[in-house]
Deep mutational scan, measured.
Amino acid sequence: MEVRTIKVFTTVDNINLHTQVVDMSMTYGQQFGPTYLDGADVTKIKPHNSHEGKTFYVLPNDDTLRVEAFEYYHTTDPSFLGRYMSALNHTKKWKYPQVNGLTSIKWADNNCYLATALLTLQQIELKFNPPALQDAYYRARAGEAANFCALILAYCNKTVGELGDVRETMSYLFQHANLDSCKRVLNVVCKTCGQQQTTLKGVEAVMYMGTLSYEQFKKGVQIPCTCGKQATKYLVQQESPFVMMSAPPAQYELKHGTFTCASEYTGNYQCGHYKHITSKETLYCIDGALLTKSSEYKGPITDVFYKENSYTTTIK
């Protein structure tokens, strides 16, 4: 009895394709271990004539594949690729409408935090270190965002349907971005203890939790000093293409032309909904596939993004 075979390709990165001759009487799992086709788990399936010449994702289970996976995804987590594939199996079914010149995501599976993050990423200057993220990001900007969303979920250790947080998501993504040249110098002034300067680099240099107003941050924000008295913390120097200011959701007025974009969060910790506000020729609110415009805006804002380049204080 002759062994019926077909020729397929296996890959971990969709760049390096490895030619395989597979036995049609055995499952993919018996031949390769966990195997995925377009995100779908085909591990328990036997090869079919229609699979001839198709590319299958496999887990990096030998040295060659491990090197290829690390170079593309910059992670050695053995569960990463499987999590990416199972997320992709959902995100490829989502709709990605162009809204006001940006790629958004039609609401499904509690994905409003991903839509808000995706919209924000198209408006701030950011370059990702893992080629996987950078490639998928370019495709997302062009309207094909399924891979990018699935990668975000995998890097953030999230599953489809789980509630997510924009600030946490951005923080994970910033860790995989090139923020080497970003720098922030802060000064804390206390009447009792004097003053202390701190220099922050990388992710810490672009994120701040405690106030939404970048102007206020430049002037000074009140913080408790270690001595128990009130101290003032203010920005001395900022070198970065953008800054992200966050605070627990509270009524906040966004003035046209003073910011790049913002995240609105309605609801409580267990259950809520994100919308995205962007400042173009007027203010726009993007909620999944829905767009509304207004000249002014007041609502429960939790993150505001500002364009920056270089700032030095005039406070002496």
Rank of each mutant, 00 (worst) to 15 (best):
44 K>T: 13
302 T>A: 12
146 A>W: 07
88 L>H: 06
141 R>Y: 04
263 S>F: 07
172 Y>P: 04
276 H>E: 04
281 E>W: 08
59 L>K: 07
32 F>H: 13
151 L>P: 03
128 F>G: 05
37 L>T: 09
180 D>H: 10
262 A>L: 00
217 F>R: 03
73 Y>M: 00
12 V>T: 09
210 G>W: 01
13 D>R: 10
167 R>I: 05
66 R>A: 12
238 Q>P: 02
189 V>K: 12
311 Y>M: 04
87 A>F: 03
281 E>A: 02
255 K>P: 02
89 N>E: 15
93 K>E: 12
244 M>P: 00
63 D>S: 10
77 D>A: 05
7 K>E: 14
194 G>L: 02
173 L>D: 03
150 A>H: 04
218 K>S: 03
165 D>C: 15
181 S>N: 15
47 P>V: 08
48 H>Q: 14
194 G>A: 07
174 F>Q: 02
100 N>P: 06
290 L>I: 13
295 S>A: 13
283 L>Y: 10
195 Q>C: 15
203 V>E: 00
191 K>E: 15
115 A>E: 09
103 T>W: 04
181 S>I: 07
101 G>D: 08
139 R>M: 13
226 T>F: 06
207 M>W: 04
2 E>M: 09
129 N>H: 12
239 E>L: 08
37 L>F: 12
245 M>C: 14
20 Q>T: 10
144 E>D: 13
119 L>A: 13
298 K>E: 14
295 S>Y: 08
267 G>T: 15
151 L>F: 06
214 Y>N: 00
281 E>G: 01
290 L>P: 03
271 C>P: 09
59 L>I: 14
132 A>R: 07
35 T>F: 01
144 E>Y: 09
41 D>W: 04
89 N>K: 13
108 A>N: 04
133 L>P: 00
24 M>H: 12
264 E>F: 00
17 L>M: 14
165 D>T: 02
179 L>Y: 05
236 V>M: 11
110 N>F: 05
162 E>F: 03
51 H>L: 03
251 Q>R: 05
126 L>A: 01
233 K>Y: 08
101 G>C: 08
119 L>K: 01
222 Q>W: 04
305 F>H: 02
193 C>K: 03
242 F>Y: 01
43 T>V: 00
241 P>I: 02
51 H>G: 02
114 L>Y: 06
213 S>Y: 06
116 T>V: 15
185 V>P: 05
263 S>Q: 07
302 T>E: 08
63 D>T: 08
51 H>A: 06
206 V>A: 03
243 V>K: 00
9 F>V: 04
232 T>R: 05
156 C>D: 04
4 R>P: 12
119 L>E: 00
287 D>Y: 01
185 V>M: 08
24 M>G: 12
240 S>D: 01
183 K>I: 06
187 N>H: 08
256 H>A: 12
12 V>F: 09
192 T>R: 12
14 N>V: 03
166 V>R: 00
152 I>L: 04
100 N>V: 09
74 H>G: 11
57 Y>N: 08
204 E>V: 07
161 G>A: 09
61 N>S: 12
124 I>W: 11
115 A>T: 11
272 G>S: 02
163 L>N: 06
143 G>S: 03
230 Q>P: 12
291 L>G: 12
279 S>D: 13
68 E>P: 03
244 M>H: 05
21 V>P: 10
161 G>P: 01
15 I>H: 15
111 N>M: 09
204 E>H: 07
280 K>Y: 10
139 R>Q: 11
90 H>A: 11
23 D>K: 12
208 Y>S: 04
146 A>C: 04
17 L>P: 00
72 Y>M: 10
150 A>T: 05
210 G>Q: 00
2 E>P: 08
315 I>Y: 15
312 T>P: 11
133 L>C: 00
275 K>H: 04
216 Q>H: 10
140 A>R: 07
62 D>G: 07
252 Y>V: 06
25 S>G: 15
43 T>S: 13
110 N>Y: 03
168 E>L: 15
25 S>V: 09
84 Y>T: 09
27 T>A: 13
283 L>A: 03
256 H>G: 08
257 G>N: 01
106 K>G: 15
150 A>R: 05
151 L>W: 06
141 R>D: 05
274 Y>S: 07
94 W>Y: 03
273 H>V: 04
76 T>I: 09
272 G>C: 00
6 I>D: 09
126 L>G: 06
189 V>E: 12
8 V>I: 14
150 A>M: 00
149 C>H: 02
47 P>S: 03
124 I>C: 00
131 P>G: 00
192 T>K: 12
246 S>R: 03
111 N>W: 05
293 K>F: 07
34 P>F: 12
180 D>G: 11
265 Y>Q: 04
313 T>K: 15
117 A>T: 09
264 E>K: 00
313 T>A: 15
68 E>M: 07
168 E>Q: 15
8 V>F: 04
286 I>Q: 08
307 K>Y: 07
53 G>H: 11
152 I>P: 00
77 D>Q: 04
14 N>P: 06
97 P>D: 13
42 V>I: 11
305 F>T: 00
269 Y>R: 15
103 T>C: 06
277 I>L: 04
16 N>Q: 11
4 R>K: 12
242 F>M: 03
